[in-house]
């Protein structure tokens, strides 16, 4: 269980970092999304992994920690909103500049 979760987080992070280092905006955004999935899983695991344990006292013998779940919920909402914002900006940049390269300095209009 621990190994599986750790491997998943590792693979998601690796994929995220690889995509983030690409030159076009769409892979970069995908990379950021993968990274935020990895982070959400990691946050979830920070309350220790437990099987068949609800985060409510009285439902099971050993309830799990509810706080990381609340943190993950907040983090998911925020990263969802941020992804929407960056997508809109990427589309706007693409429409305005005519290309979707994410590096600056390639376009004479960048200095303006």
């Amino acid at each position: 269980m621990e190994l599986l979760v750790a491997l998943t987080i590792g693979v998601l992070t690796a994929v995220g970092i690889y995509l983030m280092l690409r030159q076009r905006s769409f892979p970069v955004i995908l990379g950021l999304t993968f990274l935020s999935y990895a982070v959400n899983l990691f946050l979830f695991a920070s309350g220790r992994l437990a099987l068949n344990a609800a985060p409510i006292i009285g439902t099971t013998d050993t309830p799990t920690d509810p706080l990381p779940q609340a943190l993950v919920l907040t983090a998911i909402v925020i990263s969802f909103g941020m992804t929407a914002v960056i997508l809109i900006m990427a589309i706007g940049g693409n429409l305005a500049a005519g290309h979707d390269r994410i590096d600056l300095g390639q376009d004479p209009r960048d200095d303006a």
Partner: peptide, 30 residues
């Protein structure tokens, strides 16, 4: 165009920062 593209970079950079922040908070909490 220039401002929007610079803005895109700014957002991407800060999203990475936010992810790191969450990892650090998870470690602290754990």
């Amino acid at each position: 165009a220039g401002r929007t593209r610079a803005g895109l970079q700014y957002v991407a950079f800060n999203l990475v920062g936010s992810s790191l922040f969450l990892v650090a908070l998870g470690l602290l909490y754990s």
